[in-house]
Amino acid sequence: MSEKSAEKALRIIKNYDGPRVRIMEVCGTHTHENFRLGVRQLLPEAVDLISGPGCPVCVTPADYIDEAVWLAREKGVTVCTFGDLVRVPGSRMSLAEARAEGGKVRIVYSPDDACSYAKDHPEEEVVFLSVGFETTTPGACLSLVRASRDGVTNYSLLTANKTMPQAYRALKGSADAFLYPGHVNAITGTGVCRELVKEGISGVVAGFTANELVTAFALCLAMLQKGEPFFVNAYPRVVREEGSPEGMRLIDQWMEACDTEWRGLGVIPGSGLKLRKEAEAYDARIKYEIPRMEARTHTACRCGEVLQGRCRPSDCPLFGKGCTPLHPVGACMVSGEGACSAYYQYGM
């Protein structure tokens, strides 16, 4: 029985004979798993799989890194961060380089761990680099709930949190269907996807196992052949219609929408989150009066086009030459999940 549905799904994928289509994954973990599993090999020639802007590391602009480096070097702040951000190049240096110079950069598993560290080290000033989409943001908010409850005053966030809905709209023309990021939808629910269908934007909410990805691609191709805008939740064991109301409430309690820059894509109005005025005691930008950073980026880098599926990583003149995972120039090479890094590492 189960073996059969896997075969059916693979048959749907292999036998796709519709028009040329572009499917965009907008989740770094999808990019990663699709490469790890060799999913591209299964897709027929008429299907382009584009790695869109799904990794918060990739879309975080250089001036954000500059701010974090400034905190570590000029203010002696202990910067707590997810591992992915450590090698991201800023205008002058990465956090790894700031650490080598003596800056305190601590890799944490979660914002909660960063808050614990602050609580245990009252003599240090601790800032958590709060990046991420709707999946990650509630955790950052929970760390503030805890900081305020436990009176942890040496803890704050440097926010670069982002939300996906406006990004789908901005990328509407770049893909025929999105592989929606399952864990974002676990928080937001699926209402937003239904809204997008009305605007002519199609997609399938996908999980992350081999079965789930194969299912999602099969559904996507079957629906694309019908030619109508569509939405399917192919990850119902985790993603519910209503998402996580508590997660959304927490985000709304602590943060509000703002315009924000996506590395490579520019400013997308209303796609960012910043701390509300009432929470400014936890806003590192206010607390440490961080000056405005003017980021410099490499002119030859084509990350922006890669993120929009307008070119492949290998089309960029820097790819594999001036820009490699060990010495990244562009955002897409920085994170293991970045499209360029994944292409480079998996030799595609």
Binding site: G28, F35, R36, L37, G38, V39, Q41, L42, C55, P56, V57, F82, G83, D84, V86, R87, A96, I107, Y109, S110, V131, G132, T136, A210, V214, P325, L326, S335, G336, E337, Q345, Y346, G347, M348
Partner: peptide
Amino acid sequence: GRVTMTTEIGSKTLLPPPGGELLPRIC
């Protein structure tokens, strides 16, 4: 010069070449 892996769905993929410090990947 390359290391490939036969994956659980039967396709072939490249093992990412080694590089740098191992950093936990969260997001």
